[in-house]
Design a protein around this nucleic acid. Sequence first.
DNA 1: AGCCATGGGCAACCAAAGGTTGCGCAAAGC
DNA 2: GCTTTGCGCAACCTTTGGTTGCCCATGGCT
Lengths: 112, 112
Amino acid sequence: MNDDLWSAIGDPTRRTMIDLLLAGGSGTATSLAEKLPVTRQAVAKHLAVLDRVGLVTAKPAGRERHYQVDEAQLAKAVAQLASVGASWDARLRRIKRLAEAIERKSKGDQDG
Amino acid sequence: MNDDLWSAIGDPTRRTMIDLLLAGGSGTATSLAEKLPVTRQAVAKHLAVLDRVGLVTAKPAGRERHYQVDEAQLAKAVAQLASVGASWDARLRRIKRLAEAIERKSKGDQDG
DNA sequence: AGCCATGGGCAACCAAAGGTTGCGCAAAGC
DNA sequence: GCTTTGCGCAACCTTTGGTTGCCCATGGCT
């Protein structure tokens, strides 16, 4: 199931970082750290993780490193989220239908 | 955003456990551990986590503890997954539209 | 050119979380 | 009544998210 992608977006700080990058188009470790409750180093580590799984890409600009979201990879991650969600949703629906069917049957038994 | 729910389903082992519980209706720490690459104790810890956030409930049966998924809470979790996914999806779409608009504009500039 | 402010990488360290082994206990089964 | 067996608890290890401290390089200012 490619758990790397999941675990990458599993961390709340990293999710917020992706949000910030999407909102601003791009950002550096320092600029992101200003908007997050963690230090620049922590952000840098997260960026390294996101970079490793391809969710972000870095372009060096002078002494700065501008990170931006890789759209294709994020789309992949979103698809995985949707997939798991859909699977569970389907099962929940099936359970619900089953429960309703049983209830109807028990009512029918009482009536009969 | 209720990160507890997210972090609960963020772990791949716990996701698989939820899958197994949904598939089988219910299960014990021992029965789940048989189908997982981890020890019973690890499973028990995960069950404790899932129990704490309300994703599963335990019903003692003799010396066994049968766990089953709380449908309402799982539905909540699925909704959160969908929400984050939808948010990113929307942003990705907006970016794509913007990129296309810019491309059209540059072509128009060349033509004019 | 020279200096200092600033962005960033590296290393050491800490705490929490996922995982393991080992133990002990209580309920089921013979 | 004795043995299995399912669980819970405790100690320990490793990874990971986070911190502080230090140093290097680049860029702006004078």
